[in-house]
């Protein structure tokens, strides 16, 4: 028999813990866990219509998806999209933060300027970029015309459409991530730089050996966010390309939306959603468990 006081104390602690957890648990259950389960459940049914009512078909919807060339094209697009936007926006954010954190004139202005894209709603940003990209009228073509370059329909041809989308995303995200980096940079004490100076470290060595490692927790956080955004952020597709031409700029979430609300095929949309959740979950887990171990938290 263990000590009754210790038992009581442990029970009190447990109740306290559960009480603290319950608001979050409740919200997550209602808005995350239950919908996920419900999505999985509906992904195992066939699409019902007047003649054939919906019935349980197991994983057949998934098999359909794997056989669908458009699905694979969209997956490839999204992987490419993520593969470019994540590293490039992180790199640009970091460079801008390092620059905006050093002693430059009009520092406040530079920071605000960088942050502006983040404040704009994605739809407004997309309209802005539409103005850049429009063939003939757009700013890019106008500039090109000055140098006698031919007019390019950036959004209208399969080779450039996805790139055009990628650039808008980077433009939008880099400023946002920069704010996190700036905040993290402010927490690095000034005297570390001085100590490194006295030890003879160059600016680059200091950045590489001291600043970047100390920014690792921030980078990890930004990476997870960027990854989620690479799936989540599709507002501009609606304005700029609608996934075209010939699916060249279609991303997975846009395809899910199309499947559910344009083709009214909820079960396949559900199946695709489950796959996205699965992949995101796995990647996030890898990021946290692998990189986390090599990260120093202050």
């Amino acid at each position: 028999m263990s000590n009754p006081h210790a038992n009581l104390e442990r029970r009190r602690q447990a109740i306290y813990g559960w009480l603290l957890l319950s608001p979050a648990a409740l919200l997550l259950s209602v808005f995350a866990f239950y919908p996920s389960l419900a999505t999985f459940w509906s992904s195992t049914f066939s699409r019902g219509n007047r003649r054939n009512p919906s019935e349980y078909i197991g994983l057949e919807n998934y098999a359909d998806l794997f056989a669908d060339p458009t699905f694979w094209l969209v997956v490839r697009n999204n992987l490419f999209y993520a593969g470019v936007t994540i590293p490039v926006s992180i790199f640009i954010a970091l460079s801008m933060a390092l620059w905006a954190n050093s002693r430059i004139p009009a520092r406040g202005f530079v920071r605000t300027a960088y942050f502006t894209p983040t404040v704009l709603p994605m739809i407004a940003a997309a309209n802005l970029w539409l103005f850049f990209y429009t063939p003939g009228l757009g700013v890019l073509d106008q500039i090109g015309a000055l140098f006698d370059l031919p007019s390019v329909n950036w959004l209208g041809q399969p080779e450039t459409a996805l790139w055009a989308i990628i650039i808008v995303t980077i433009w939008k995200e880099a400023g946002f991530f920069m704010i996190f980096y700036l905040a993290a940079l402010q927490t690095i004490p000034e005297d570390l730089k001085e100590a490194a100076d006295i030890e003879g470290a160059s600016r680059w060595t200091y950045t590489r050996r001291i600043v970047l490692p100390l920014l690792m927790p921030t980078t990890l956080f930004i990476m997870v966010n960027a990854m989620i955004n690479s799936v989540k952020l599709i507002d501009h597709l609606f304005i700029l390309t609608k996934g075209g031409p010939s699916d060249a700029s279609k991303l997975i979430l846009y395809y899910i939306w199309e499947m559910a609300f344009a083709f009214f095929d909820a079960p396949h949309a559900a199946a695709m959603t489950m796959l996205v959740l699965l992949v995101l979950g796995i990647v996030a887990a890898i990021q946290f468990f692998l990189i986390d171990r090599r990260t120093h938290y202050q």
Binding site: E194, G200, A201, I210, L214
Partner: peptide, 20 residues
């Protein structure tokens, strides 16, 4: 001259150790 060229070492009040 820059600090690195002066051939000296320094102990800071805050120690300024690299935390990672």
């Amino acid at each position: 001259r820059a600090a690195s060229e002066r051939n000296l070492s320094m102990v800071f009040q805050s120690y300024a150790l690299f935390p990672h």
